[in-house]
Amino acid sequence: MKTYYNPEDLKKFGKIGEFQKSMADKFFDYYGEVFKEGALTAREKALIALAVAHAIQCPYCIDAYTVDSMEKGCDEEQMMEAVHVAAAIRGGASLVHGTQMMNKVKELSM
């Protein structure tokens, strides 16, 4: 069955440089630097990436950072809490706009 997303395409990510090498090289250098141990541990970064992957709903990133989180020793509970962080921010981001709606309602109402 044809779908827009193919799990096999994740393996080709490194080949995006075929069409534009210098930008791809710069991106992957930056990407590698971001995920190194730093002020945050590589494990903490994997969980942040997992949460962001859910927030932006990228199936490639969800696969990649589920594996990465498991490799770095995160358990199921920690990974699901990271997803809840994404859900809370996404839900909160909708709800906080309720204040804009309330402002407008009040502006227009007698």
Binding site: E37, T41, A42, R43, V67, D68, M70, E71, K72, G73
Partner: peptide
């Protein structure tokens, strides 16, 4: 899946 960094897992 593969094991992650030995140092990071040891600390955890």
């Amino acid at each position: 899946f593969l094991p992650g960094s030995q140092e990071g897992l040891q600390a955890e």
